[in-house]
């Protein structure tokens, strides 16, 4: 007699596919928020599996800060073609040009917070009532409190103290006009689970996740890529380093790590022994103890 068990990766996969299918069934205009990072690439893979052989029944939304890694953009365009899905791009540059938001100034200027306005505008324009995202609870302490189905009021705000209880796998998608949901199907995955699954399923990733040589600027201990979006301070210099990225955000705020890991096997080995969280390299989370909670309340991913 066989032993009816599945391993943890298949259980997490099953849970995520169940959630993605619930979204397609319970909402009129869902969309998948696609950053170009490994978690959103994983999300497209899970969505493809959920509806195969039909196409993914919702578009991808990319909020383009204009500060992307070029290899991430190229990867995005190829993936969209391969999946045969629609891509909606919300542009932060456009929001700046229209005067909807004001660009930060100074050497540490970032467009990270500006994304919130573009995101909410894009969701509203396309009448998106459910935005699927690849956020995970193990990433950050405010995200540890997220629901799978996370309700947002008509202003796109999150009210963490007054969340709907979420029982079993019965997801309550009821809402009033103008409200929407953020949906997090891979809530229960850890960084290690994501990498092990990427290896198991042989999922392609942008090259920046693997070890490569890059011109960098070291600022406050963070290894930043040299790019036209970064202004050098007086005593700073450009140095070539062998690095890779653990997350993929905007070029001026995403730190690399020194690494020789150029295969999935080596990356998994590296993560198993690493002593810092993946968002530890993100300058946007270091703007205060509750930086993520504050941005999430306002409508951030």
């Amino acid at each position: 007699m066989s032993n009816y068990t599945i391993n943890h990766l298949r259980e997490l996969e099953s849970e995520a596919i169940f959630v993605i299918r619930e979204v397609a069934a319970q909402f009129e205009n869902p969309a998948l928020l696609f950053s170009g990072g490994k978690d959103s690439i994983l999300m497209t893979h899970l969505a493809k599996k959920a509806f195969y052989p039909a196409r993914i029944p919702f578009p991808l939304i990319h909020i383009d800060t204009g500060h992307n890694f070029p290899e991430a953009l190229e990867f995005r365009d190829n993936l969209v073609k391969e999946l045969g899905v629609k891509l909606i791009v919300g542009s932060v540059q456009e929001a700046i040009d229209k005067g909807r938001v004001k660009e930060e100034t100074g050497v540490n200027a970032s467009r990270n917070s500006l994304q919130i306005v573009s995101l909410l505008d894009t969701l509203e324009e396309h009448k998106t009532d459910a935005a699927l995202g690849g956020a995970r609870r193990d990433e950050e302490k405010a995200r540890a409190k997220e629901r799978f189905f996370s309700h947002r009021d008509e202003f796109g705000q999150w009210d963490p103290k007054n969340q709907r209880p979420e029982l079993w796998n019965l997801f309550n998608a009821r809402k009033h006009n103008g409200e929407h949901f953020r949906i997090f199907p891979i809530s229960n995955w850890t960084e290690m689970d994501v990498w092990e699954y990427i290896k198991l399923e042989n999922i392609a990733l942008p090259s920046l996740y693997f070890s490569h040589k890059r011109e960098c600027v070291i600022r406050d201990g963070v290894i930043l890529a040299k790019s036209k979006y970064i202004t050098l301070k007086e005593n700073e210099e450009v140095v070539e380093k062998t690095v890779r990225y653990r997350t993929c955000g905007d070029m001026p705020i995403t730190g690399a790590v020194y690494s020789d890991a150029d295969t999935l096997e080596k990356i998994i080995e590296e993560i198993a022994t690493t002593r810092t969280t993946e968002r530890g390299t993100r300058a946007d989370d270091k703007r205060g103890e509750t930086a993520m909670e504050d941005r999430k309340k306002a409508g951030y991913f």
């Binding site: 068990t5 391993n7 943890h8 990766l9 259980e11 290896k199 198991l200």
Partner: peptide, 9 residues
């Protein structure tokens, strides 16, 4: 097919 057989609790 599977890499390992770790269960989830």
């Amino acid at each position: 097919m599977e890499v390992q057989n770790t269960q989830l609790l």
